[in-house]
């Protein structure tokens, strides 16, 4: 109730146009100027904020392409063998250097089928090693261990190794579809 009374006060007692000069506060004018300054400040902040916030959020706003990368030819991978293959990420920039490389563990299961595992441990992303003799993947960071099919054998990993898609293109090119670094979520 009292708010309404306050809001109505300037209307009830209209001030003369030369109020400012007469040292009587011209409330509607002051009100307008305050709103104008705050409003303009807001517009300026917004105008700056859009590109700045976009730059911060750019990784989420831009498209993240995937690409088929050749990792070798059929003759490079005898059936049953497991190899570390390196490839370039889908969208390297000119200043990426070697940091835009990724690696995967590629196994040739049969004449025509391959399995490719991410090198990233599902625990905290450290690089797992394939231990040929043991037939296991092992992680140096916290001792996560996976069976040859990528399922968890021991240690802290909450889920198995992520797999990449593999295809044989043309007569003998083995290609891998690039993918984001697998991020393990809290529900895993």
């Amino acid at each position: 109730m009292s708010n309404e009374a306050n809001a109505a006060a300037p209307d009830a007692a209209p001030t003369p146009p030369d109020a400012a000069e007469a040292h009587v506060p011209d409330e509607p004018r002051r009100d307008f100027l305050i709103k104008l300054s705050l409003g303009l400040g807001g517009v300026a902040a917004l105008a700056v904020g859009v590109p700045v916030v976009s730059a911060v959020l750019a990784p989420l706003l831009q498209k993240n392409p995937q690409a088929w990368r050749k990792v070798g030819t059929l003759t490079d991978f005898p059936v049953g063998s497991t190899h570390l293959v390196k490839f370039e990420n889908a969208d390297p920039v000119a200043w990426s250097g070697v940091s835009s490389e990724s690696a995967a563990w590629l196994r040739r299961d049969s004449e025509t089928t391959f399995t490719a595992f991410s090198v990233n441990c599902s625990h905290l992303g450290c690089p797992v090693r394939w231990e040929q003799g043991a037939g296991l993947f092992m992680c140096p960071c916290h001792g996560g261990i996976y069976y040859k099919d990528g399922s968890v054998a021991a240690g802290p990993p909450p889920q198995g190794l992520t797999q990449y898609k593999i295809r044989v293109n043309g007569p003998h090119d083995v290609e891998l579809l690039t993918a984001p670094i697998p991020i393990t979520n809290i529900t895993s």
Binding site: A58, P59, P92, S96, S99, I181
Partner: peptide
């Protein structure tokens, strides 16, 4: 990435993309 709901996005934001690279 373990942050509920937005984990994967937050991780991507931290790396500057899907993977390590020039932006990281």
């Amino acid at each position: 990435g373990r942050v509920p709901v937005i984990g994967t996005y937050a991780a991507r934001l931290l790396l500057g993309g899907d993977t390590i690279g020039g932006q990281s």
